[in-house]
Amino acid sequence: MGNCIQQLSESVTLIASDDTWIEGNAIQQLHTTSKLAGMRRVAGMPDLHPGRGYPVGAAFFSTGRLYPALIGGDIGCGMALWTTDLDARKSPAEKLEKRLGNIDAPLDDAWQTLVSELAPANVGFQQALGTIGGGNHFAELQRIDHIYDPQAVAALQLDMKQLVLLVHSGSRGLGGSILEQHIHRHGHAGLVQDSADCVDYLAQHDGALQYAEANRQLIARRMLDRLGANGQQVLDVHHNLVTPAAIQGENGWLHRKGATPSDTGLVVIPGSRGDYSYLAAPIPSEASLFSLAHGAGRKWMRSECKDRLVKRYSPAQLSRTKLGSHVVCQDKHLIYEEAPEAYKPVDSIIASMEQAGLLTVLAKLRPVLTYKTRGGCC
């Protein structure tokens, strides 16, 4: 257990086994971030990888000031899991793909009443609600492959005979606009706690969290509507956000960038689009700053994926996975960037957190149909 919680310095912790592949630049970014003014603790998760100046797959605890750049532009990005009444034995990927069609376009007028109920008013970007976006975002129909804790799974009303739906998306252009405004005014210096600018940012941040949650719900409802199915939300968890927190007796701000909270209930940790996802019960720990990995973590930079893979796979070949699932992604660059080979094996990520005593796996979920985009990356 001990070797999965590595103390790299007095203020930097890494949750990873000795054989977890982590790029050196990501470790360097952890150390660089730990030197920001007011930063007390930094924790990297096993899915850690380099970001634009700051690492992804990490949590950061500061006092006296908070850092919007550590959360990034996709404020509120997260995972939502839904039950469905789709028969897992009678819902082949081909049939589901045909019925789903194209869900890239804005929601039509029939959805506007629900949009007004769910989304924060007057924040703009209403046209993007109910759409997935680009990058690593997706919506995926899955079947339950294995149950490790039957009682816990039954309590969620999950059934191996029915498909589940996992939605990964965030605040679309809204979060990016909030970060852009902040960087234009303040650069990367952070915001002094309780200052007018800090209060203003937190209000915008909380609006983006509400927007992101509404977006995931609208994506799920839109898909269920297309598929003629019913469903209920089981969980919705943000993994890009900042919250007040107390760590080792100090009050401050806990930033998460691609880090799933371990102190708010059950979570789903997905692999790549050709890998399993895991439903897990977190075991909260200060060692990981009450955080877990949010996925498998990138192994390759996006810019190098197509060159590495284009001679091995066509886009059509990448739309079928080794697990038999289908991937809807008609952006020829994105399908290479999101190929399973570009990510770490999710089993290794889960194993590191299990060995560190940070979670208990409840169920393993197998992909059936992944939707990313029917057209260009949006």
Results as ranks from 00 to 15, higher is better:
residue 5 I to H: 08
residue 6 Q to M: 05
residue 9 S to N: 10
residue 11 S to T: 15
residue 12 V to G: 07
residue 17 S to E: 15
residue 20 T to P: 01
residue 30 L to K: 08
residue 30 L to W: 05
residue 33 T to S: 15
residue 36 L to A: 11
residue 51 G to F: 02
residue 52 R to E: 12
residue 55 P to C: 14
residue 56 V to R: 04
residue 74 D to C: 05
residue 76 G to F: 13
residue 89 R to M: 08
residue 89 R to V: 00
residue 94 E to A: 15
residue 107 L to M: 09
residue 113 T to H: 04
residue 118 L to Q: 11
residue 119 A to T: 13
residue 121 A to Y: 02
residue 121 A to C: 00
residue 124 G to I: 14
residue 126 Q to H: 06
residue 127 Q to G: 01
residue 132 I to C: 03
residue 133 G to P: 13
residue 133 G to I: 11
residue 135 G to N: 11
residue 136 N to P: 09
residue 139 A to L: 03
residue 139 A to P: 10
residue 139 A to V: 12
residue 140 E to I: 08
residue 141 L to A: 05
residue 147 I to Q: 03
residue 159 D to Q: 13
residue 161 K to F: 02
residue 162 Q to F: 02
residue 173 G to D: 10
residue 177 S to N: 13
residue 179 L to M: 14
residue 179 L to G: 01
residue 185 R to N: 14
residue 186 H to I: 01
residue 187 G to E: 03
residue 193 Q to S: 13
residue 200 D to T: 13
residue 203 A to N: 05
residue 204 Q to I: 00
residue 207 G to L: 13
residue 209 L to Q: 13
residue 209 L to P: 00
residue 214 A to L: 07
residue 220 A to T: 02
residue 228 G to D: 05
residue 232 Q to A: 14
residue 234 V to D: 06
residue 235 L to H: 10
residue 240 N to R: 05
residue 240 N to E: 07
residue 256 R to M: 07
residue 256 R to W: 05
residue 265 G to N: 05
residue 267 V to W: 02
residue 271 G to E: 09
residue 272 S to D: 07
residue 274 G to A: 12
residue 275 D to H: 06
residue 282 P to L: 07
residue 285 S to A: 14
residue 286 E to T: 09
residue 292 L to E: 06
residue 294 H to M: 12
residue 295 G to A: 11
residue 303 S to K: 15
residue 304 E to M: 11
residue 308 R to I: 09
residue 309 L to S: 10
residue 313 Y to T: 02
residue 319 S to W: 00
residue 319 S to F: 03
residue 325 S to V: 04
residue 327 V to C: 05
residue 329 C to A: 12
residue 332 K to E: 12
residue 333 H to V: 11
residue 335 I to Q: 05
residue 337 E to G: 02
residue 339 A to K: 04
residue 344 K to I: 01
residue 346 V to M: 12
residue 354 E to A: 02
residue 354 E to Y: 01
residue 359 L to E: 00
residue 362 L to G: 04
residue 368 V to W: 09
residue 373 T to D: 06
